[in-house]
Design a protein around this nucleic acid. Sequence first.
RNA 1: GGCGCCGUGGCCGAGUGGUUAGGCAGAGGCCUGCAAAGCCUCGUACACCAGUUCGAGUCUGGUCGGCGCCUCCA
Length: 426
Amino acid sequence: MRLYDTLTRSHVELPPPPGPIRMYFCGSTVYQRIHVGNSRPFVLGMWLRSWLRQTGYDVTLVHNITDVDDKVYAEAAKQEISSRELSERATSWFFEDTDDLGLGRPDLEPRATETIPEIVEFVRELVSRDLAYVANGDVYFRVARFPEYGQLSGARIEDMVAQETSELKEDQRDFALWKSQKPIEDAAWDSPWGRGRPGWHIECSAMAEKFLGREFEIHGGGNDLRFPHHENELAQSRSLGHPFAQVWVHNGMLELDASKMSKSLGNVVTLRNVLDVWGREALLVFHLSGFWSKPVDFSDDVMQQALARANRFRDVFRRPHEDAPADAWAGFAAALEDDFNAPAALAVMHEWRDHELLRRALGVFGLATLAEQEAAPAEVTELADRRQRARAERDFDEADRLRVEIERAGWEARDEPGGYRLVRLP
RNA sequence: GGCGCCGUGGCCGAGUGGUUAGGCAGAGGCCUGCAAAGCCUCGUACACCAGUUCGAGUCUGGUCGGCGCCUCCA
């Protein structure tokens, strides 16, 4: 399988099965309900794991939860609750919402606050090697000590100008590894540099290496994390001589009204809301419809199209099975093996009338539920039976009246040779 | 300003040198008591300009337009 690697800007071939493939995906900062855009890297990670396992790899997926951050403190203060209470509540929302995607859970979901000893140790090591320095209770990484800095984001180090300046920094491009406790911050930990809490980027280096080791195969996350987050992770780990991630995958942003969906812009639709309105299957088909690395527009219109497409798959299972050619699966697999080209894989799937094959392919994406038929309640079945008798007696007025009644109950009567089928209206 | 991505038919969206992507919506037809589902047909898609080539949506250069990152962000 080949994947597009942001670091080398090229497609790279994964080592052959059984791997192992160790994957680390950056998750969300938990201080409110996540939005649909946040679901994209989660879904991508779960699908990659699913497909790689399907093709014989031994896969471990770590998906972190950032539960200590400026946003968490600020929101907790606003709500007048402790930051711990807020982050725990938001973490349980995160679990609820992503559970409802029906894709299962990542193998490990560590939280930053549970990794403090490893983070402190990591920072201590950087300081002892002179790659970082202490300034008034803060610890900063010395960007100038890592010549490859800027490789991931493609920016030249000379072009970088820090927006947020601090007189504590030797160089304005340096970034914080540890931050001393501020009055608003109600959660803090002891460290060799005083009470404080980790900087944003160090938690991921620490968690990834804690659970996957100093070298692992895939690191994923949103395109907006390339810089500074992932650039900084890379700097922290590689400056210590750790190989760190071999392949970097960055998903494109979800756009709403032609601009990126983001909590800071406020143009947000929560994952919860999308699941409630459109259902998990339509959302997954939506995610499948666009190439993972490209930006996609999110709108009612595209969700409507995704829903219709999901129903088209569902209808295949309501018609007779037809054996697919022996090489049918190969076309599907080839699409996914080529940088996980899901839209192309979907196109192959639409050709199939083979129930077993289609169910298996849908299963890769957590969509095997489309193969299941919902049984109509007894009262609707009774209406349909009466309608059948009316049709037999050629009382078509009565038959049509009953059809309307069935539709009011949320079902559709489809006449078939020798009987009928009841199908739930979308 | 710097770095990068992108511009495909009404809509979504694959495709990187030459043969139908696929889906949604629409029109006509077959089927049906009527429908639904399905199947068939249709609308002559590649932002613009120049170039390379026997041949370009696909390569090169330029123009215009959109987006992302450079600052918290999936």
